[in-house]
Amino acid sequence: MFKRLMMVALLVIAPLSAATAADQTNPYKLMDEAAQKTFDRLKNEQPQIRANPDYLRTIVDQELLPYVQVKYAGALVLGQYYKSATPAQREAYFAAFREYLKQAYGQALAMYHGQTYQIAPEQPLGDKTIVPIRVTIIDPNGRPPVRLDFQWRKNSQTGNWQAYDMIAEGVSMITTKQNEWGTLLRTKGIDGLTAQLKSISQQKITLEEKK
């Protein structure tokens, strides 16, 4: 169930391209415009997507990853294993993690069937560096609404905000991946996880038929 919630949630996290980005210092504006741009692209490019579902990787690479804190999220997933990894191991892992996100997020976007969304009203940021933004996803086919909290983090150097995690039903996506990959990290280390991520990233994206 959580895996499905995570995939549905990713439908609204794909941010804007650099040329049309919203105010990078306001995570609420980023979330709002990102959702609108993403849904528009999914709707307008269905012919290309249906002809070649792996085209979704391109959308992810162009529109999402430049505005997601990939390395920060990847380091959180590694936890204690990050500090013990060599620079070469980290570089290989982050490259594999990025390719994994292209496949995983692309597969999530393949679930698009006309969903709509509501974003919580903007709250004062103050001096906060981590801000959760509640998004409610509404399914046109009558499924119950899904309420999610996207975690946005302020870059201490640039002042810009980027998304790095999502919490559904009190469970963090980062925590879920830590639990899912924990045994592999304990037995085969970061190299074993890197190899698995490379394998997963090679899987073809498949479209979910409308139910």
Results as ranks from 00 to 15, higher is better:
Asp40Cys: 11
Ser156His: 03
Val146Pro: 07
Met31Cys: 01
Arg143Met: 06
Val135Ile: 05
Leu76Lys: 02
Gly106Arg: 00
Ile174Arg: 03
Ile200Phe: 06
Val8Tyr: 15
Thr116Phe: 15
Ala73Pro: 06
Met7Gly: 02
Met6Val: 06
Ala51Val: 12
Asp191Trp: 03
Gln123His: 10
Ala88Met: 11
Asn141Pro: 11
Glu45Cys: 12
Gln123Phe: 14
Gly182Glu: 04
Leu125Asn: 08
Gln123Ile: 11
Lys177Cys: 14
Ser199Tyr: 09
Val131Met: 13
Leu184Asn: 12
Pro53Glu: 13
Ile130Leu: 07
Glu99Met: 14
Tyr55Ala: 13
Ser17Arg: 12
Val135Asn: 05
Ala75Asp: 00
Asn52His: 12
Pro66Gln: 06
Leu193Cys: 11
Gln36Cys: 11
Pro66Leu: 03
Met166Ser: 11
Asn52Thr: 11
Gln196Lys: 14
Thr116Ile: 14
Thr175Leu: 10
Glu208Tyr: 09
Gln24Leu: 11
Lys128Ala: 10
Tyr28Met: 11
Ala96Asn: 07
Thr136Val: 13
Gln46Ala: 06
Leu56Ser: 07
Leu148Lys: 00
Leu197Asn: 13
Val68Ser: 11
Arg134Gln: 01
Ile167His: 06
Asn179Arg: 05
Met166Asn: 07
Gln24Phe: 05
Gln178Ile: 02
Gly159Ala: 11
Thr20Glu: 15
Ile133Thr: 08
Asn52Phe: 03
Gln118Ile: 12
Ala34Thr: 13
Tyr112Met: 03
Glu122His: 08
His113Gly: 07
Ser84Ile: 11
Ala73Trp: 01
Gly79Asp: 02
Val77His: 13
Tyr112Ser: 06
Lys3Gln: 04
Leu148Arg: 01
Met173Ile: 10
Lys211Cys: 05
Gly159Met: 14
Thr129Tyr: 09
Asp23Arg: 10
Ser199Val: 14
Leu65Cys: 06
Ala9Met: 10
Lys3Leu: 04
Leu76Gln: 02
Tyr117Val: 06
Arg90Glu: 02
Ala35Tyr: 04
Lys29Ala: 12
Lys3Gly: 01
Thr176Cys: 08
Tyr28Thr: 13
Gln115Pro: 03
Phe2Ser: 02
Thr25Ile: 12
Ala163Glu: 01
Ala14Gly: 11
Ala19Gly: 11
Leu10Ser: 03
Ala163Ser: 14
Gln89Tyr: 05
Leu30Val: 06
Gly74Tyr: 01
Ala88Glu: 12
Glu209Tyr: 13
Ile119Val: 14
Glu99His: 07
Ala168Asn: 00
Ile49Ala: 10
Arg153Thr: 00
Tyr82Asn: 01
Pro27Tyr: 04
Ser156Cys: 02
Glu63Phe: 00
Gln157Leu: 12
Tyr117Asn: 08
Val60Ala: 15
Asn44Met: 13
Leu207Glu: 14
Leu65Val: 11
Leu184Glu: 14
Ala95Ile: 11
Thr176His: 01
Leu56His: 07
Thr176Asn: 03
Gly114Gln: 06
Arg153Gly: 01
Ala88Pro: 11
Thr86Cys: 08
Gly159Thr: 09
Thr20Ile: 15
Ala19Asn: 01
Thr129Lys: 15
Val68Glu: 14
Ala34Cys: 07
Asp32Ile: 07
Arg98Asp: 14
Arg90Met: 03
Leu193Ser: 11
